[in-house]
């Protein structure tokens, strides 16, 4: 269980990224907490890792009146310990606290989780329900995509070649909004067998996201897992998140 050889680069300049990532087999790396296990099994064999952690603003947390801005490099542990205004702060902490284990959360990033889009991951589902927007950056050019457009399919996103996920913007919900979250996993910190998230803003229909074979999806359009056991768990998660 050792990774195949790769080259390594780190840059503190956004404008250098597209060229570094243009090399065949080059991929960006944030906390490496999902990538390293895959590399150790040699199911991922990147030719070059391009570290994003030195980029300006990459770990920033900023608040504007209607928005929480999270740099893609904000770690799960940072979210667990509290970012942004209530009630969002508590909700994000709750999701973050269930991801893997504290030492993994200390390195793993929200952006990395979204950009990998493992269909069993937590952030894609939770942030999709929370109406988050992905901030994509190519060199100095930025564009914004709602998560439902960013999360294309399992392990697939709308990132274009040379483009990286720079930040996530989460709209600040009203004080009386409710958030429901249910993750069913075989053990504490394991990847979800089913997860569901719900944002209930008074006066609006609830916004419900679930994990699915196609990745995080909004209800009612999420396909059911083929495995009847997982399909059943999915129904339970939905029921509990929306209760």
């Amino acid at each position: 269980m050792t990774p195949a050889a790769f080259a390594f680069s780190r840059t503190a300049r956004w404008e250098e990224l597209p060229a570094l990532l243009a090399e065949p087999g080059a991929i960006p790396v944030a906390g490496a907490q999902s990538l390293m296990p895959m590399m150790a099994l040699r199911v991922a064999e990147p030719a070059r890792l391009v570290a994003l952690d030195a980029l300006p603003g990459y770990r920033d947390v900023r608040q504007s009146p209607g928005l929480l801005h999270l740099g893609a490099g904000v770690t799960h542990a940072t979210a667990e310990d509290g970012v942004g205004p209530e009630p969002l702060r508590g909700w994000l902490a709750r999701v973050a606290g269930g991801i893997a284990y504290r030492p993994v959360r200390n390195r793993g990033t929200i952006g990395g989780s979204l950009a990998l889009h493992d269909p069993a991951a937590d952030w894609p589902v939770a942030l999709l329900a929370l109406r988050a927007v992905a901030v994509l950056r190519h060199g100095t050019a930025e564009r914004r995509l709602p998560l439902q457009e960013f999360l294309v399919g399992p392990f697939t996103t709308a990132l274009a070649p040379g483009e990286v996920l720079a930040a996530i913007e989460v709209p600040r919900p009203p004080e009386d909004a409710r958030f429901g979250w249910c993750k069913l996993a075989p053990s504490a910190g394991a990847f979800a067998e089913a997860s569901a998230a719900m944002l209930q803003i008074p006066g609006a229909p609830p916004r419900v996201a679930v994990s699915s074979p196609e990745g995080a999806r909004l209800m009612p359009d999420a396909p059911l897992p083929d495995d009847p056991h997982l399909a059943r768990l999915r129904e339970v998660a939905l029921r509990r998140a929306t209760a």
Binding site: P37, L41, P186, S187, A188, A190, F191
Partner: peptide, 13 residues
């Protein structure tokens, strides 16, 4: 073939 698939009991459990 990994501890992600073979679950040893943990303290929390």
């Amino acid at each position: 073939t990994t501890f992600a698939d073979y679950h040893l009991p943990e303290a929390a459990f």
